[in-house]
Design a binder for these strands. Structure first.
Lengths: 140, 140
DNA sequence: CTCCTTCGTAACAGACTAGGTTACCAATTC
DNA sequence: GAATTGGTAACCTAGTCTGTTACGAAGGAG
């Protein structure tokens, strides 16, 4: 499965919550829209909660709701909450330090990759959950 | 392993070839710098060759060399050659079409994600293999 | 106060991915 | 023709992720 898998699922979860403002939705309700298991949704919501994007309430009549207005939640925040960003990934084996290439390729590449990832995040930050909801309603 | 793994390895391979201009390097030589198996390197080089970035020669005294000057190879081309880009990845299970969110979230998100990936690729396209080699030599 | 609902999380099974390895054929040079 | 090297298939292994079950913690309903 691709790397955006958790991210797209997390946005889906947030969109479901945004579609029912002021209500507490159970993980089972959200899981029905995702067509998956409630525990999978709870795992996503735990990450979103740790990032301060959603609030949860336990017990009877409990559930999840957005912690902020949809216009104050951008896609970069969701991606940051869900995709544990460990920086650029290199091969499991460290390169041979004998050659100049092997010795310095990783930090050099890491800088260029980080620059590209920053550009990607900036583009995601331009889109809020409210924008997503607007596009969703335009499609329907 | 992260998604950039094949990409970083491919850039490493190209950098090794660029460090020995006019020579044909065997997969075993390149693999020594990567500290991995020759077959893994050959798989990477096969993808790079299909994209027209490297040329191979079989038989005795055969090997690989860059097909263009390092200044004419940018990181976006390497990423495109190696990372089979299947577009945004969604959850294995299709969302429930009962709700508006589940029915239209995927195409809406795909557009926003594609915009972000385009920004990332554009940043990678600004860096050529010659830039990488220059930075490498500056570090040494 | 007790029970029921729901979140929070650990633990485990299954599918899938990717790297590593071996093996063998094709092509090229000497 | 023999040796070398790329090209590629087949398989093994390790790691990751989803899905599932299970159980404890928290909070409301009666």
């Amino acid at each position: 499965m691709g790397r955006n898998c958790r991210f797209t699922a997390a946005v889906h979860v947030c969109a479901v919550l945004a579609h029912h403002p002021g209500e507490d939705l159970t993980s089972e309700t959200v899981a029905a829209s995702l067509n998956t298991n409630p525990v999978v949704v709870r795992r996503l919501l735990a990450a979103l909660g740790a990032a301060g994007l959603v609030r949860s309430k336990r017990g009877s009549a409990g559930g999840y709701r957005l912690a902020r207005a949809p216009g104050a939640i951008d896609l970069a925040a969701i991606a940051l909450a869900v995709d544990d960003d460990d920086g650029p990934a290199f091969a499991p084996n460290p390169p041979s330090p004998v050659c100049i290439v092997g010795r310095f390729i990783q930090p050099v590449l890491a800088e260029f990759i980080e620059r590209a990832e920053t550009a990607r995040r900036a583009e995601l930050a331009r889109v809020t959950l409210a924008d997503v909801m607007e596009k969703l309603r335009a499609e329907a």
